[in-house]
Design a binder for these strands. Structure first.
Lengths: 189, 189
DNA sequence: TGCACATATGTGCTTTTGCACATATAGTTT
DNA sequence: AAACTATATGTGCAAAAGCACATATGTGCA
């Protein structure tokens, strides 16, 4: 369970409300661990009970009040303890790759559309990450960590984007007919 | 829920028992979707109820009997329907990257050990994938899909391995002291 | 006036996942 | 004889995740 730790680590930067955290999970740390707002609010309540975070009600005018959470010393210790456990291997679960694995049973035009969308997503993130990374000159341990995180994100997105492009090419109709049709297969040999 | 579909797709290749499937999930399709044997047996029971797979008891001597499952026409249709839905974005959840994000709060020597282990794992898989990929000359739609899957796996592992190496270098003590110590920071400018 | 939107925080319910444990057969090793 | 390994199939239970829905305030816009 590292949602807990993703929250603690985020609060290690600066105190935040659940709402802030939810936005934060949509942007920066969300690349490493995704979470939705109900998950976050529930987890915050548990962390508060355990004393790993402290909460402070903040009055606001013109808007609902916010509950701002801060990391406690116990929370800091919890991060340290957790960081000494071996990390759990990332559990891969990719719908799209399962389809590719069973390519002869799926709707290929639909898969191509999906692939196109994926490629665009990877390209977008690729540009976003490289823009952010270009602006970081690591002056602290934290910045170094963030930069390394961006680097793997960037590598990942870049490879995926390139692979999508290759795969779109490989899945063009004119390349597939010869595979499906036994006559063409013979002709191609 | 694509465990269901990962099983259906696997049975599309050839009929298998739960035990076979569990091994299969440890090897090939496990790169795209991980599952343990209790998950698989439970899912198989559900798929059987829905008529997406059929089961046949096979007597064996010297070993317990096996229940072999086959894909039905309804199952084939289910794969097709599913493949027409947009794929769900892969949900990233990586402990290790969360630690990197909060680098100033974690135990860095422990993280380095973890990083070393990861790197070895990525290198191993990299070699395994490239050995398998080298032996595939795609002659059918299925083989083309499998090859493309291996290609992204290979790219992924290669980038991760390289990144791990870079990061191990960046996290060496001699590079970190200057970041932690304000005096050294001034001296470095 | 009505509506959408951004802020802000939650509840309820279902599905999925993970992990430990249970059970049975038969061969191999110590 | 006891322990270990491989084959083969499950149950029980708790944690985690996902998603729809609920609620409240104030602003801007048509």
């Amino acid at each position: 369970m590292a949602l807990k730790h993703a929250i603690l680590v985020s609060l290690g930067d600066t105190p935040m409300s659940g709402y802030d955290l939810a936005k934060h999970f949509d942007e920066s740390i969300g690349f490493f661990w995704r979470a939705t707002h109900p998950q976050i609010y529930r987890e915050l309540a548990k962390l508060r009970e355990k004393g790993l975070v402290s909460a402070e009600e903040v009055q606001q005018q013109g808007r609902p009040n916010r509950t701002v959470y801060s990391l406690t010393d116990a929370g800091r210790q919890e991060i340290l303890d957790w960081s000494r456990q071996p990390s759990t291997p990332d559990s891969v679960k990719d719908d799209f790759l399962v389809r590719l694995y069973g390519l002869d049973h799926v709707d290929i035009p639909a898969l191509r559309e999906d692939l196109q969308l994926r490629m665009e997503g990877h390209r977008d993130r690729c540009e976003r990450f490289s823009a952010i990374a270009a602006g970081i000159e690591p002056r602290s341990i934290t910045e170094l960590g963030r930069l390394r995180g961006l680097q793997i994100g960037l590598r990942y997105e870049r490879e995926w984007a390139a692979w999508c492009e290759e795969t779109l090419e490989a899945l063009k109709d004119e390349h597939l007919v010869s595979l499906e049709d036994p006559f063409m297969q013979l002709a191609g040999q």
